[in-house]
Amino acid sequence: MGMSVTISAAAETDAEQILKLQYLCYQSEAELYGDYSIEPLTQSLDDLRAELGSGCVLVARLGEEVVGSVRGTVDDDGTAVITGLIVHPRMQRHGLGGRLLGALETRLAGEWAARRFRLATGQRSEGNLRLYRKWGYEPTGTEEVTRKLTLVTLEKEATAVAFATSA
C-alpha cells in the first residue's frame, strides 16, 4: 500500500468525509435488518457537525482519505457512550476497528475521565459483537427496537483499558 493509517482527532473539515463513509458502511447493517431508515443513513451533515463539537471524534486516515471513524461522549457518572465505529469496507478485517476503539478508550479515560465504556450493536451483527467481546466488552442488556432489530448493549470498566491496549 505504501502508506500507513494514522488515527487522530477529527476536524470540522472531516465532517463530509465521515458522513459519506458512514453512509457507505451502514448499508450492510441496513440490509441485514431490512431497514434503510436507520439513523446513520438519515443523519444530516449539520447533525454530524454538532456531534463533532460535543464529544470526542477520531478518524483514521490513509493519506488524506478518511477510512474510519469512531465517536464518544462521557456523562456526569463517568460512563462513556461509544457510537459510530466505522471502517471502510476495503479496510475491514485488518485490525483498524480495534485500533480506533482502543484509541478512543484511551482518550476518553485520560482526557474525559471515563470510568466505564458502553456501546450497542444489533443482535445479528456478529462481526461487531466479536470485535467488542475481543476488546473485553460484556453484554449487559437488550432492547427490542423493531420486530427485526434488537440492540445488544455491552459494557466494560475503564480499568480494563490498560490491559486491552497493552495486549
Rank of each mutant, 00 (worst) to 15 (best):
G98I: 00
Q27D: 07
W135P: 01
H94L: 13
L19S: 04
A113R: 13
S8R: 15
A15D: 07
Y26S: 05
A162F: 12
L52W: 08
L154M: 14
I38D: 06
R71T: 06
V59L: 03
A162H: 13
S69Q: 04
L131R: 05
T42R: 15
I82T: 00
L32V: 04
T150L: 04
W112K: 06
L131W: 02
S54R: 14
M91E: 14
I18A: 01
R71L: 05
G97W: 00
Q123F: 12
S69A: 15
Q22L: 09
Q43P: 11
G127W: 01
L108I: 09
G136K: 06
L62H: 10
A158R: 02
R71Q: 11
E51Q: 15
G55M: 05
L52D: 06
M1V: 04
Q123E: 15
G122W: 00
L149H: 10
I7C: 00
A109W: 01
R116V: 03
L154P: 00
V81E: 12
T13F: 03
Y33I: 15
G141N: 05
D47F: 10
L101P: 03
C25H: 04
T165D: 02
S54N: 14
E12V: 14
L104K: 06
A164N: 12
T140Y: 10
A10Y: 00
S125G: 07
V5T: 12
S166A: 14
R107W: 01
T142C: 15
V5F: 06
P40C: 06
Q92H: 06
